Computed example of a mutant assay.
Amino acid sequence: MDLEKRVFAARDGQFEDLALDLFQFQYYNNPVYHQYCNLLKADPDTVDVLEQIPFLPISFFKTHHIAATDFEPELIFESSGTTATVNSKHLVKDAALYTQSFMQGFERFYGKVDRRCILGLLPSYLERNNSSLVYMVDELIKQSHHPLSGFYLYDLEKLHRTILHNEILKQPTLLIGVTYALLDFAEKFPMQLRHTIVMETGGMKGRREELTRQQVHRQLQEKLGVHLVHSEYGMTELLSQAYSKGDGIFHCPAWMKVLTREEDDPFAVHLPAAESEKPLTGALNIIDLANIYSCSFIATSDMGRLYSNGSFEVLGRLDNSDIRGCSLLAV
């Protein structure tokens, strides 16, 4: 449809118009979002700026069928969790739409993927089905066309040999991994990397003591000899990712934007003034224009700091991850 073409062709200055058009589309085609907007008395005829668009609490993906239009999903992504928790489910109408989003997003920040060897260290994700992160990394591995690209489940020795081989050949390499697995690897096989980007995706998954991002990066820098540790910010409920190249500051692709909301008033949403030197601190709301057939306007359970250029950093989780306002819709 026309929206799909417009999302990835959007230029500076077109984001707000496209977001408002997408809001209209999802209001009329996503029953859960439609009901939520009505309860907030958000009339699509009067919503004319980003801050007025209602953001759906992310926990609704655990309790409701979130879909714009009626379709049979090609993919169903599911969040990680324990047997005692209810996992989020993201119904993806078109797998090609997700692939286009993450491939264009990755190449915007890192260039063509076929210039790199892609090494995935995602054991906890590979051990379960329907991980959006595994789907993304698997496609990056395939598109790299490098014979040594692949997933390394628990074979850290083989991963070590592969990285040493690539370092000797000066082969540009990306090691992307869940935080606890990268720390395990770095402790067992310390080395001095010169041609390898180390990218963490967050998550201790109960395997190690929780650390701040700064502590994690410091340990990886010391053990692996890298000057900077990169990071990926994504989630089951989105089709787009933001990336940090080492300073803990994330940048979004052109079709993704972050806003903040006040923790004690989830409907008070803010964009930073372009000329402001002072960042906004609050809970993070995300607009993901690629999420056409789901919901593009998500109120996350992350706290963060938002800068005037649209970049942001993640400070932690809300004390109560069930965002206030969720009770507006009964399960």
Rank of each mutant, 00 (worst) to 15 (best):
H270M: 13
G234K: 09
D302E: 02
G282T: 06
E313M: 01
G310Y: 00
A299C: 10
F312M: 00
A273W: 13
G234P: 11
H270S: 13
T300F: 12
E237T: 05
H227P: 01
F297I: 07
Y243L: 10
L280R: 11
L289Q: 12
Q241K: 14
N320E: 12
D247T: 14
D247G: 11
R305L: 05
P266F: 08
T260A: 08
D319G: 15
P253M: 10
D265N: 15
D322A: 10
M303E: 11
D319Y: 00
R317T: 13
H230D: 13
H227K: 15
C295D: 12
V269Y: 04
D302S: 13
R317Q: 14
L284T: 10
S301C: 08
M235C: 02
N309C: 03
S294N: 07
G304D: 00
H227L: 15
L280H: 11
D264H: 14
H227I: 08
N309L: 05
A290F: 07
D288K: 03
C295T: 15
P266M: 07
N291G: 04
G246M: 09
A273P: 12
H251M: 01
S321A: 07
R261W: 02
A254R: 11
A290L: 04
P272K: 06
L306S: 08
E263H: 13
N291I: 13
D319E: 15
V226C: 13
W255E: 13
S327M: 02
I287G: 04
E232K: 00
I298K: 07
S296V: 00
T281Q: 12
N320L: 11
T260C: 07
L259F: 12
S244W: 09
A242K: 00
R317E: 10
D322H: 12
K257W: 03
I249R: 13
G282N: 11
S294P: 05
R324N: 13
F312L: 01
P253E: 12
